[in-house]
Design a protein around this nucleic acid. Sequence first.
DNA 1: AGTTCCATGTCGCGG
DNA 2: CCGCGACGTGGAACT
Lengths: 219, 219
Amino acid sequence: MRILIADCSVDYEGRLSAHLPEATRLIMVKADGCVAIHADGGAYKPLNWMNAPNTLIEEEGRWIVTNPKGEQLTITLHEVHSETRHELGQDPGLEKDGVEAQLQKLLAERVDVLEEGLTLVRREYPTTIGPVDLLCRSSDGGAVAVEIKRKGGIDGVEQLTRYLDFLRRDTRFESVRGMFVALDITPQARALASDRDIEWQEVDYDELRGIESDHLKLF
Amino acid sequence: MRILIADCSVDYEGRLSAHLPEATRLIMVKADGCVAIHADGGAYKPLNWMNAPNTLIEEEGRWIVTNPKGEQLTITLHEVHSETRHELGQDPGLEKDGVEAQLQKLLAERVDVLEEGLTLVRREYPTTIGPVDLLCRSSDGGAVAVEIKRKGGIDGVEQLTRYLDFLRRDTRFESVRGMFVALDITPQARALASDRDIEWQEVDYDELRGIESDHLKLF
DNA sequence: AGTTCCATGTCGCGG
DNA sequence: CCGCGACGTGGAACT
């Protein structure tokens, strides 16, 4: 990601025509090429923007952003106050609706629901390519990486496979099993998981919540 | 404006529950107090945000943003890579020409697109209950009142009907036809218009823009 | 303040 | 790729 603080004026020609007079603003260029121009207020919506995909041509004191639909954003840079670049990497993404996060939380508290004798090592165990939802230890001492999804599709199995690749290179672990857990798992995902010796398991959300509240009542 | 680049995890509790696992992200705090958390891709919309007004409490390694509606955003800062502040000042704001206004303008310049031989009398022709978008004259000399909408619904037909009532009481007009024009017209609006002998017509915005630019090229 | 409608809406899902 | 609906829609105009 690239961040500029600059005095600039902006023109947009596309679905409508718009113009921004000269002022100091923040210009954000993301890794996917999208551009956003922010003022120091007014919620999260930028004053002007161009979504990916688009091409950015940098001339002296002028940026021209064009997209395949023929929309064009022209940024005239009068003075650049600062310019920085940062490597952010891929984002694991938002867990929405609370369902996935809630599910992860519930299961983290009761991993033995998934397998007798299973204990939690860490939630969101970090790897170089992102955090594993749950890292556990089975009763025989082996590690178990658990990937949790609301809807279990092929992509989830692929994700868990990548984590397993990395975890298995870590010499601290004797062995690492993979477990794919979701409210619903598609037949394709089941087949792929089985083929890769990844266990899969469907869980019932209401039942889990019930187990949790029973658990709370007991103690 | 304050810009942080940091490894963080985020929890939002409010209109829904959402969670962001740990990753490197940009955190933007604007002068009005609104907060936005951006990944390095995915258009201009942040992963998570809190609009002004809200209060920001900074603890060690944890920010808690609360708004009067009781929504809460918790940012756990695992590692801050960079933090900068910039004075941007007040923004003069965006000058734009919106779609509906643009549509009216385009059609005003080329009313013959709607009907052969049609000529413009006036844009925003005033009546006691409000201005008619376009008042035109057809090749046979009769008046034509045009109502333009982006999305043509029943309410638009009702509006045009009221204008026609008033225009038809005006003795200066022999006769007044009504024409309802929109990018899309709902089936209900079409039926109502037809029932009241109001012509309706869907127009294509891009095509109109095309006609306009062709027109400009010719002269 | 509540309501309705527009938006360079954005975004995700299904066909 | 495209149509359709939901959105923490946001925002403005109007009642």
